[in-house]
Amino acid sequence: MTKTFVIDGKTIPFEDGQTIMQAASAAGVYITHLCHNPQFTPHGSCKLCTVNVNGRNCSACTFPASEGQNVTNISKELNEDREKITQMLFVEGNHFCPSCEKTGNCQLQAVAYHLNMTDNHFPHFFENREVDASHPDVMIDHNRCIFCTLCVRASEQVDGKNVFAISGRGIDKRLVVNSPSGLLKDSALDVSDCAAHICPTGAILIKRTGYSVPIGQRIYDHAHIDAVALASEGEAHDH
């Protein structure tokens, strides 16, 4: 007999070893997330996927599904927490959407739209962060990095290169590049690498492609991120 648990009243089947996120996505239930991607080992850092499991808050992307769990995913409290987390991401970096070529295709922005976020609530850090445009085909704008580690995991687990890492802790943490100069041009990164295309924000961009799709016709301009994520990640889970 299939094992099941419940999310917001809906019965979700799962197999042993699946996380709540994996089982939910496979059953067509979207749980807000940024650092999760079904291709890679879960990281559990962004906390946007926080759900309530039998009365306790857990990260759905790392928490194993088990028989009889009662999970709350959509509630006013959880969505308000998610909105506050997203606002903190916006004020910690420098996210100026009108001047970012990722706008409309950006998952950070799309999560904000999805949560009905219209302001940043907190005081802005306006931190001085660098741009690394040294690589011929790929650039890093550190202003927009949210430390989700998707590029770190993609480089390690798919490209087998270890181009990226997170250095430092807390407010001092930074995305660093594995090269003698610390610059992207001296790293092993190639434009065809998975790590060059995985960034959920506008931090890692492919040069000369930014405006090939006009603003207004981009992924999240008209579609909610839940529908987009379920469609694309559903495919990834099936493989």
């Binding site: 916006f90 996210h95 100026f96 009108p98 001047s99 302001d119 940043n120 802005h124 306006f126």
Partner: peptide
């Protein structure tokens, strides 16, 4: 009411903050 990107996060003029 804060109207537009600049009112909400400083916008383009705030890019001088660095």
């Amino acid at each position: 009411v804060a109207v537009g990107a600049c009112a909400i996060n400083g916008g383009l003029p705030a890019m001088r903050n660095h």
